[in-house]
Design a protein around this nucleic acid. Sequence first.
RNA 1: GCAGCUGUAGCUCAGUUGGUUAGAGCACUAGUUUGUGGAACUAGGGGUCGGUGGUUCGAGCCCACCCAGCUGUACCA
Length: 444
Amino acid sequence: MVKEKTLKPSKELPLGFVDRKEKELLIRDFVISNIKEVMIKYGFQYLETPSFEYTDSIGKFLPDKDRPGEGVFSFKDENKWLSLRYDLTAPLARYVAKNYLEIPKPFKRYQLGTVWRNEKPGPGRYREFLQFDADYVGTKNLQADAELCVLISEILEKCGLDKADYIVKISSRKFTDKLFEQLKITSQDQISTTLRALDKTDRLGWEEVKKLLGEGRKDKSGDYTKGANLKNDQIKIIEDALKNKTPNSEDVEEIIKIFQAYNFKNYQFDPSVIRGLEYYTGPIFEVNLNFEVKNLKGKTIQFGSIGGGGRYDNLINNFGNLDCPATGISIGLDRFVFALMQKKDFKIKSTRPVIICVFDKNKIKEYIEILSNLRNSNISSEIYPGEGKLKKQMEYANKIGSPAVILYGDDEIKSGKVTLKNLETGNESSIKIEDLANEIRKLL
RNA sequence: GCAGCUGUAGCUCAGUUGGUUAGAGCACUAGUUUGUGGAACUAGGGGUCGGUGGUUCGAGCCCACCCAGCUGUACCA
């Protein structure tokens, strides 16, 4: 008989997806609770929309609209294309359009949710991640834009960042619009290429960007990128405009005034902040971290932005004749958590249970008594859930990071006390059962 | 998409100019210790050498194609 090849299910994860462990999740929870507190304080409503939307509801403004664009995960359901949301702004626009008459105007809402992007993942960038998004809908008042920046900074500081750890960069689409007018560039193609090139200033540096503005650039791998074909004098004008760190743009000036009223100083006007192409219509912002972050291989990396946003006065109008200006900001929470885990002095309390070791299965009643006592005192605890000798139980406790182990065998039963072993120091002490909870609390 | 690099044990990797039964460290299991983890020692399990085809007496190693991953780059609402 021929041996059939057994089909084993793959234990590998799809490209760009990851398992996330407790330490990361606890920090994420901590960040989320800070976000919620701040958002309530600033008067935002909490909203949740579904993971799937009709593709055209969230993709209408995409260049190719017949088929779900590259970049989204989609499937066809009853002849209609559905896509997993790729951000929280597009679903918000859909929500606002759908409920336009009922919602208050302006409408302030925040949302936390997983988003998916069907694209090539990079270091620290996945195809599934958690996003936080806050938006002001239905107002042109730049106070909204300013407040988004202030609020983000409050969240970051609440999570333990110092002022030196981050900066909010701001610019405006109006700044670049003016620049193109001055340069007499009208070709949409050239404008796009130029904007994309400028967007890379942070990562590549001005000298490389210059090549992209001109003929083109060859990267490290030898790959060649075509440039915007600007003339040298045009490039010079751009260079000068970027050097000039005063915002030649009314909206940015007004926002800065509001920042001053808030006594918010941790911002910087940076005309190289571009963020995407069509979508934004006015002020744009980006949040950057300044502290050192290492990648999984221990190499220090340039972490870049953890989020950003801007004003999108025409997006909601795509759903019909709704003149509804809006502005918003998003943070990639997993990326932020990844960085936060590495910040010096950042500690999160983990809560691993104390283990009650099992010497004799017939003594289960006594063990449960001790256990109930601890759990009633709100101490994380468990009776060793497996089977095996004490050695194995100790190994288990050690491996899960348990702070202590409780021994209650024949010797203890005779003396009427339990042995509490501190797993960090290895010290053992004999404790009366009624004092156990208090003694353990001292270790935690 | 384009380009470069890399695929050998759960993980990190070694493997001579092609030559018997493919190695190490970590991890795992058992024991040294029938009531004691993190250290040490001993023993053990674990591999279609990414896949397919080819060259060869003989392929982890050479060739071709495919697949996957990494890095850069492009696109990115």
